[in-house]
Write a protein that binds this DNA or RNA. Structure first.
Lengths: 333, 333
DNA sequence: TCCCTTCTTGTAAACGATTACCGAGATCTA
DNA sequence: TAGATCTCGGTAATCGTTTACAAGAAGGGA
């Protein structure tokens, strides 16, 4: 498979390769007649520039590296999609790698991406402590930003959602809808989001006129949602008017268990989630939730690294996007 | 950010760059003492090979390009994940691009990936006719395989699921469970999968002892599933014992509407889907479905292109993986 | 001992672009 | 018209590897 090179284009256009290169990239400092001759020759020969060669010499690959724990998680896959879309707008490509929640694999993938000379990195760190060293090492070499999750004890750039503000909106909404008592079903604070949501609930619960101190912590699974809901049902204590869930998966489990226990949602208990996963709108009843604005997160993340790349923007930028509340049937009194 | 080059490694080890290069890549044809000296020097200097330079000279980037219609679709995102995992096993990276179901965008992305000298391409073509030209052009330049969907009228490589066999299994299962009449709710045959499933149903319906000629075609959405189920309910004709759905999303809509109409599943009507999306197992009742073995599909796809790359395997390989049936509550009599 | 392999090694030429530098005209200014 | 400035284009270096080639060293068989 022999490819047309810039040399052949230059030859056909009757100019040197230097002029051809200039004409093809921007065209500044090239007389109009020559520029047109070069472009015509390129067209006629169906010239395709070799991006690898250009990258070697210009020391920039126009490639963004991204490392995520898992691609198939719908929340992450949406982030990947939006980062890719945003990258393409800047005429860049996405080199994607998975850590499978293994900090060592994550470190290896980061190194591989650096070896491939990515211009910048967008990372969803898989572990709040053990991801730190590799991420910081990578961030010393190229502009890098953490997306969604953040590792402990670093000042490196991060873009994510303001979890506290999101929980606050949900709590306010429940109170507006008439809830006088609340409970929180979430995950143990094993990652930065889980902790921020729990802290957010603790702060927000002051807005509730009645008792709001029941907090059940497990993991982010549907099964835990069911188990926790069962505990509420079996507890003997009166059910809260509203249940704030740490994410939608938990909330779906809660809905399922409450309905199995004969409790009507939202009439007896209102339920709210966090994330707005695709199925939230399809649940019965449709789930009120805090929407993570993935498109804005991705855009901000890319803007952050590109800013560091081009403008030399400040390297320690922390952006917390305030999420919006999506009110649906599960909280409609 | 100055990097250590192989030249410095060679110098420190007291050999030429050629020897250093040989020692670092495989080490064949290098005396043991020298090889060790080189490796030690590389270690001490924390040498990181520049993959771009290596790619330029060796004319191979160890990169797989992948173009998908959408990353956030859970079926596609799982395929992406598995392709990435498989690529990593062969020490390759994944350059990922999205077509957003636009054939022109798809063509542009393919060209970009080729400019970047990917070694091979895995493509989920977004349109059965209008994807053809660009895909075939790309396939003439590097090993390329279509994944899941296939464009019309090409003999190029393809790896996907045997839709007909999958539908057949589902029909056989329903008949075994006692269904004597069937209906099919699917999508108009606008892509190769939709057509193969519809054809598969028409062939398989001969296995049904009673009437099985009700076929309702719309699109692959939950809404269409609800609408079609409503048509069955309102039609006046007796309900079929089993409903075969073109995919799980439709099946979830059918479940929802039947339950809203007071029809018990599976006691009165059994329902089966196709794909085994994550939510299928969580539906009420849990949905029987035909599982797409995404890991095997991805592995086969990569094996196909790598085979063409390395072994010069036949360029027109069509692999139809037979899917397995996952029997759950929605068909348990 | 001599010839013929087989190993190792270094030199230097790729790979295909971008770009520093310089010189030749063209244009402008006084 | 001379000198300064600007525009444009070519030569050649460069990016950091891999690899073709040639040559020297070592080993083996007759």
């Amino acid at each position: 498979m022999v490819s047309v090179t810039i040399k052949q284009v230059a030859e056909r256009a009757g100019v040197s390769v230097a002029t051809a290169s200039r004409a093809l990239s921007g065209g500044r400092g090239v007389r109009k007649a020559n520029r047109e001759a070069v472009l015509r020759a390129a067209e006629e020969l169906d010239y395709k520039p070799n991006a690898v060669a250009a990258a070697l010499r210009s020391r920039t690959t126009r490639t963004i590296g991204m490392v995520v724990p898992l691609i198939s998680n719908p929340f992450f896959s949406t982030l990947v999609e939006e980062v890719e879309r945003e990258a393409e707008l800047g005429d860049r490509c996405l080199l994607l790698a998975t850590s499978h929640y293994d900090p060592e694999a994550e470190a290896r993938r980061l190194r591989t991406l650096l070896d491939r000379q990515v211009d910048a990195l967008v990372v969803i760190p898989c572990h709040q402590e053990r991801s730190r060293e590799a991420f910081e090492a990578a961030a010393r070499r190229v502009p890098a930003v953490q997306l969604d999750l953040s590792v402990d004890g670093t000042t490196a750039s991060w873009v994510g959602v303001d979890n506290g503000a999101g929980i606050l909106r949900l709590v306010d909404h429940l109170v507006e809808q008439g809830a006088r008592s609340l409970a929180y079903i979430g995950s143990e604070p094993t990652d930065s989001s889980a902790r921020a949501r729990l802290d957010g609930y603790r702060r927000a619960s002051a807005r509730c006129p009645g008792p709001a101190d029941r907090v059940l912590l497990g993991d982010f699974s549907l099964e835990w949602g069911r188990a926790a809901a069962r505990r509420l049902l079996d507890g003997g204590a009166p059910l809260p008017d509203g249940v704030v869930c740490g994410n939608d998966t938990i909330a779906l489990g809660v809905l399922r268990e409450l309905s199995a226990g004969g409790v009507r949602v939202p009439a007896e208990v209102m339920v709210g989630g966090f994330d707005d996963i695709p199925f939230a709108a399809l649940a019965e009843p449709a789930l009120t939730t805090v929407r993570q604005p993935q498109d804005r997160l991705a855009a901000e993340a890319l803007r952050t690294v590109i800013g560091m790349l081009e403008g030399g923007a400040e390297p320690n930028r922390r952006v917390a996007v305030v999420p919006e509340l999506v009110a649906r049937a599960s909280t409609a009194r």
